[in-house]
Design a protein around this nucleic acid. Structure first.
Length: 546
RNA sequence: CGGGGAGUAGCUCAGCCUGGUAGAGCGCCAGCUUUGGGAGCUGGAUGUCGCAGGUUCGAAUCCUGUCUCCCCGACCA
């Protein structure tokens, strides 16, 4: 029995082809794959449906099959499983290093925020009030029905932090007396709660993990530079660590963080061509320092309000990684954030081969673990589980481990290994001497990282275009099949006059928003607004978004 | 919060229209066979049919309520 597996690795398999192959799919409950063995080479995909068939469902299945997370007993909240949490740990380690390099330190502030703190900044209240979880009691007592009922009402309700500007502002007000106390450059790794209407794994959950940096400065210029510096840190992290190309720019007034004067963002294109806001950096001016009373005596002896910033990224980044890199066979981990780099699968046909094969695998693992990849020890899994080789192999493919080594007696005889790169197809597997593989592992991982970035960039470039008239714009953002919208659209670089009415008109008609105003906007030259025709200073990025 | 879909074995689902007391495949367990790759054969275990009421001699099936998940919209990282 032979089933040739072709990992497509791209997002263009024809519907007909995929449908034809459906009957072979091992996880299709109504398919007895064996009945048709020998009929054809089957294009099986480990994830069903494919991206093309049903993108949102494909996303859910990848999260599940890769064992990244699962739904929990609590509405809108997820359990992040070890393989998914390891990604978050790597994100944290990487980003934290960049924060430290730019002079920041970590601290921790309370989960609970007194209601009155939140009331201090008007726009901030409007922005978050609807999605706040509120704690009103502090004790449970036995109820009449044998259950527990809340008792002991709090004098003042506590809000579970949706973000910490207010409580950190109150704290900074105490820390800051003089210009000598500035700047304050603090970051916090924490969980926050936003009671969302509609949730999706990693992309929008009621509780999520994030980091929020909060800084206070003596001057406007210094705070401004900080805001842009941290945006640059996010850009660098997204591109170098996540292999996810991003656009940088400023949000329009309508998309701005509640209470901020300016919000800057990194925006990435997912494989369904929708935009994902992957990180934001806010210039808060003196709004929050006035609300919280962060005042200091200046060099001139005057009492002044500090200038503050805040910036954050969240577990949403993991969702972005999935939708940037995963394919129809599951997750594809960028090596720099992968929980583990290499899975070694011992191929044992007869019991008497076992000892030799396993000891060779352990030796290979040991040599690999002695190698460094960007300062981190190469992580290796030797999969000794008593399962079929194919089953194990597909398990690692679905989890997205960058490299799989198959090692059997024949390889051992040649002192070699059989290599599969997750970013290529299984047809591209090749054998090579163990020593050569071991010494080249860091370069191999970097090559995978680069190819993933290049592929993602190609996708973005292929679906970014300049549009100058409304008809073309409408066509670009309208699915061909209204019943089951396929991937369509992308980033439309179009002129905009700057009016909120035009922005809203496009959103109402096509669910398209201005994702960001690029920093290099002016370089495109001025032109007529795609909506109303009035003159605008340059193109902005329009897209559908998550 | 509005519209649509769905909750039945560990998983994917059939059964529901036309009420009669629960099924398939995969997985799991046991045995035998197989072995450069998502194995085959034989046998076996598994369900308060999302939850709560109601109608009925009888409810997975009909009615009401409720919770959860998915999709679309509004809102948002």
């Amino acid at each position: 029995m032979q089933i040739e597996v072709v990992a497509t690795g791209c997002y263009c398999a024809s519907v007909a082809h995929v449908a034809e192959c459906c009957i072979y799919r091992f996880d299709n409950p109504h398919c007895d794959g064996n009945r048709r063995i020998g009929v054809a080479k089957a294009n099986k995909t480990a994830i069903s449906p494919t991206r093309e068939e049903n993108y949102p469902e494909w996303y859910q299945q990848v999260v599940k099959s890769a064992e990244l997370a699962e739904t929990s007993a609590v509405r809108g909240c997820m359990v992040i499983k070890p393989w998914g949490y390891a990604v978050w740990e790597n994100i944290r380690t990487g980003l934290d290093g960049l924060f430290k390099e730019t002079g920041h330190v970590n601290a921790y502030f309370p989960l609970f925020i007194p209601l009155r703190f939140l009331e201090q900044e008007a726009e901030h209240v409007d922005g978050f009030a609807k999605e706040c979880a509120v704690v009103t009691h502090h004790r449970l007592e036995a109820g009449p029905d044998g259950g527990l009922v809340p008792a002991g009402e709090l004098e003042e309700p506590l809000v579970v932090r949706p973000t910490s500007e207010t409580i950190i502002g109150e704290t900074y007000a105490k820390w800051v007396q003089s210009y000598r106390d500035l700047p304050i450059l603090v970051n916090q790794w924490a969980n926050v709660v936003r009671w969302e209407m509609r949730t999706r794994m990693f992309l929008r959950t009621a509780e999520f993990l994030w980091q929020e940096g909060h800084t206070a400065h003596e001057t406007r210029e210094e705070a401004w530079e900080e805001t842009l510096q941290m945006l640059e840190v996010y850009r660098q992290f997204a591109e170098e660590y996540m292999a996810m190309p991003v656009l940088t720019g400023e949000k329009t007034a309508g998309e701005r963080f509640p209470g901020a004067l300016h919000t800057f963002c990194i925006e990435a294109m997912m494989q369904d061509r929708k935009a994902l806001q992957a990180g934001t950096s806010h210039f808060l001016g003196q709004n929050f320092s006035k609300a919280s009373g962060i005042q200091f005596q200046s060099r001139a002896g005057e009492l002044e309000y500090a200038w503050t910033t805040s910036w954050g990224v969240s577990t949403r980044l993991i969702g972005g990684m999935i939708m940037t890199h995963a394919d129809d066979n599951g997750m594809v981990m960028p090596p720099r954030l992968a929980p583990s780099h290499v899975a070694i699968l011992p191929i044992i046909r007869k019991p008497d081969e076992e000892e030799a094969v396993l000891s060779f695998c352990q030796k290979a693992a040991g040599e690999l673990r002695a190698q460094l990849y960007h300062g981190r020890r190469v992580e290796v899994e030797v999969d000794k589980r008593d399962l079929n080789a194919g089953e194990k192999s597909w398990g690692w493919i679905k989890k997205g481990i960058p490299v799989i080594l198959e090692i059997g007696p024949r390889d051992i005889a040649n002192d070699s290994v059989f290599v599969y790169r997750r970013d290529k197809t299984r047809k591209d597997r090749y054998g090579m001497p163990l020593q050569e593989f071991t010494h080249g592992i860091a370069a191999l991982l970097d090559d995978i990282q680069q190819s993933m970035y290049a592929r993602a960039l190609d996708l973005r470039n292929a679906h970014t275009c300049e549009l100058d008239d409304m008809d073309a714009f409408r066509t670009f953002f309208t699915p061909q099949n209204q019943q089951r919208p396929e991937a369509h659209g992308g980033f439309a670089m179009a002129h905009w006059c700057g009016s909120e009415d035009c922005e809203k008109a496009v959103n109402d008609a096509l669910s398209v928003t201005i994702r960001c105003i690029p920093f290099d906007r002016a370089e495109h030259g001025p032109g007529p607004c795609v909506v109303c025709g009035a003159a605008g200073p340059g193109r902005v990025v329009f897209a559908k978004s998550y």
